[in-house]
Nucleic acid binder design. Sequence first.
DNA 1: GTAGGTCCTGGAGTTCGCTCCAGCGCAAGC
DNA 2: GCTTGCGCTGGAGCGAACTCCAGGACCTAC
Lengths: 175, 175
Amino acid sequence: MPDVSMTTTSERTTPQLGATSEMSSAVGSSDVEELLGIAQIAAISGLSQDTLRWYERQGLLPQVPRGSDGRRRYSPRHAAMVVLLARLRATGMPVEEMRAFSTLVSAGAATHGRRLALLQRHEERIHQRQNELQQALDLVRAKAAHYRELIAAGLDCDGAPVDADTAVQQARGTP
Amino acid sequence: MPDVSMTTTSERTTPQLGATSEMSSAVGSSDVEELLGIAQIAAISGLSQDTLRWYERQGLLPQVPRGSDGRRRYSPRHAAMVVLLARLRATGMPVEEMRAFSTLVSAGAATHGRRLALLQRHEERIHQRQNELQQALDLVRAKAAHYRELIAAGLDCDGAPVDADTAVQQARGTP
DNA sequence: GTAGGTCCTGGAGTTCGCTCCAGCGCAAGC
DNA sequence: GCTTGCGCTGGAGCGAACTCCAGGACCTAC
């Protein structure tokens, strides 16, 4: 589904969640030029620029500072927040809850406990999703194994032998 | 989000995917009365009755046989199919692909290979989701640990000590 | 026969989470 | 000065997957 064309102004970007920052070369940490534009943040987080702007409008992100030209300049802290949010979202946290988290973050150090609680609830949700996935995986594998047997034995779903034509057909799709 | 009220005509049902059938008592397999109504299928699969009907209209389910009263009567085979579909859906298979699978099933034994291929593609998708979840889990745990440290040490996000009021607040949400 | 419960159909409505777009501004390069 | 590239805003639009509902049929029990 994601479009992978890399034309000049590509909106959809390929995720590179691993790359925490490797593009600024030798300057170290000059504290001012660690600020990133929306294109970089999109590349790092895997979210589209539109999505980043939308998140901000929705209050999912603490207000992002702007440069003198009115453009967004994300601090490393913002970048980390975006990456976290992207991961939360990708693992099923509803936008509403992300907003709650963001609100807590904006509210300062006094909300650490509640942020922690929120993350723990999400951790629980992740565990549930993991279980679901594992169960589905088991079922899918069992089904697949079943089909492999039927194909190998040249049988139909009721265990009756299939004719030659069908047997040839059966093997299609499994090169 | 799911509503758990169990009033007389409950539409939303609680999943019981484990119960393959345990309600028909001693009769064994009389071949005619293993047929289940939509309410049972909903209970077994965790899908709502509306969703089951919608899936059928969408061609996600081979035509379900009807009783003399026009109601749906699901055979054990249909039931198994619904459960499989529910799990595929729950693990991110788009409806379009479920339709493709269902079409292959309806087409008979000659499509075993292609069904297998489709399931293997989904297996791959499941693995990807598992990786995503694991990465998110790691990140969430790291963040949570960080918050726990800050709370224990009574620090704010910049490593500066917080005042007493704030420290009390910090602990809220983590009983 | 009538009340209650379950199910039917077809179609409209809803939610979520983006995605697209027009119209504009700014800055750099030619 | 003009073009090109990148970004901005606000609002409309969209696709996926349900969910809800009105109006009706049928069966069972009382």
